[in-house]
Design a protein around this nucleic acid. Structure first.
Lengths: 126, 126
DNA sequence: TTTCTATATACCTATATTGACATATTCCAA
DNA sequence: TTGGAATATGTCAATATAGGTATATAGAAA
């Protein structure tokens, strides 16, 4: 059942933090590392989990893997993402993550090219 | 984190079916057995799990344990229960459960006394 | 008391999840 | 073609989950 798959994805804090960030914009793994301050392998595995369950999509851009919420989402995923957004508004952790993300965005100044070419920036992980 | 506890409770089909029924009315274990057609031990364990996570409350009425959603629920639980309700509207399983419940209610004719005294009825499980 | 009904718990097994460490892969640049 | 950067995967250990069988408990009835 689709719902169960969604809730299984939702029942880990790292994954919730990832989804919270992805609700704002697609991101590459190094961004998650910077914002969440968790080891690369942990983030990578949770992303793989989310992808295997259809909660995120990934595309490669040069060296980077860009993860994002699926372009077309079922009604159930949509509702639950919205609900998650509501619930998360007041949580310090999630708010901090979004602030960190905003800071990193303005520092690196990227737009739809989530990870700009290496020649124009420091590595994401700083 | 409260949210995680909620989603862990939500990521099992039997528990979702239980919560769906409880959104309609408090119930005793034998009702779940009748509606869900799952073995008593399975239901009892899932109820114990839900109770340990604060998603349901229980009180004893004579021989029966009456389970219900908590009287006062946090905003997160409230939102997610509502979201669950929305998502579940269209699922055959959940709809069937509610129909079965309605049938059982009219057959047994109980009101706030979820399980009426034995002298006035057949056992819940039939 | 003894018995019955409703429910809970112990114990076991199988499987899933999570995190850590080490290693592999992919792409790019020199 | 070699090296480095970004990301993924394999293996392992610890823990959690889920279902089954058998048994225990609590309350009501006989």
């Amino acid at each position: 059942m689709e719902l169960i798959r969604i809730y299984r994805c939702f029942c880990d804090e790292t994954r919730l933090r990832i989804l919270n960030l992805l609700a704002a914009t697609p991101l590459c793994v190094c961004h998650f590392q910077g914002v969440l301050r968790e080891p690369q392998v942990k983030i990578s595995k949770h992303l793989a989990y989310l992808k295997s369950k259809g909660l995120v999509e990934a595309r490669r851009h040069r060296n980077w893997m860009i993860y994002g919420l699926p372009a077309k989402r079922g009604a159930e995923l949509e509702s639950n993402l919205k609900c998650l957004q509501d619930c998360v508004q007041t949580h310090p952790v999630f708010k901090r993550d979004l602030r960190e993300l905003a800071a990193m965005r303005s520092k690196l100044g990227w737009l739809e090219e989530v990870c700009p070419p290496r020649s124009r920036r420091k590595p994401c992980r700083a």
